[in-house]
């Protein structure tokens, strides 16, 4: 039997206090329609909650939406928490109103990819598929 491509599991979360969830809900629906399993955690997630959820759900990637301008605080906090929990092989990507120079700095820190307003959902889907496929795992089960 030909092996089916692995089902992509992705966690979408909104950290911080901002409640504008239009973008993240559109992305959630687009990912679902692209055949992915989308775990949506809802609003106001702390970095601890996000990483805890990502670990428990064993997702391939975590997507974050920030529109409040707190991205330089929140993305690094999530990266740190991922390292602390030994979950830094999970891909962290995001979207929001983020100036170019901040994008550069965040990507240097380890955020895999940042999308800005107007990015077509197809671009995000294609990016995610490729990035997940490129991930390698050498873990042994038993």
């Amino acid at each position: 039997m030909p092996k089916k491509p692995k089902k992509i599991r992705v966690l979408l979360a909104k950290p911080g206090l901002d409640g504008h969830d239009r973008g993240i809900k559109v992305i959630a629906a687009a990912f679902r329609d692209a055949g992915m399993e989308v775990i949506y955690t809802g609003l106001r997630q702390t970095p601890e909650m996000i990483v805890d959820a990502a670990v428990q759900e064993d997702v391939d990637a975590v997507g974050i939406s920030i529109l409040s301008g707190a991205h330089m605080t929140l993305f690094p906090a999530i990266l740190d928490e991922m390292k602390r929990r030994g979950a830094d092989e999970i891909l962290l990507f995001g979207g929001g109103i983020i100036p170019d120079e901040d994008i550069e700095e965040l990507e240097k820190m380890g955020v895999a990819r940042l999308f800005t307003p107007g990015a077509p959902t197809d671009d995000v889907i294609n990016y995610l598929r490729k990035a997940v496929e490129a991930k390698k795992s050498d873990e042994e089960v038993m």
């Binding site: 911080g16 206090l17 901002d18 106001r44 409040s68 301008g69 605080t73």
Partner: peptide, 18 residues
Amino acid sequence: DLPTLMGYDSDHSRSLGE
């Protein structure tokens, strides 16, 4: 600011960065 809108003081941990 968002912390005020959400009923958190400026010295609350949830307000960090906002």
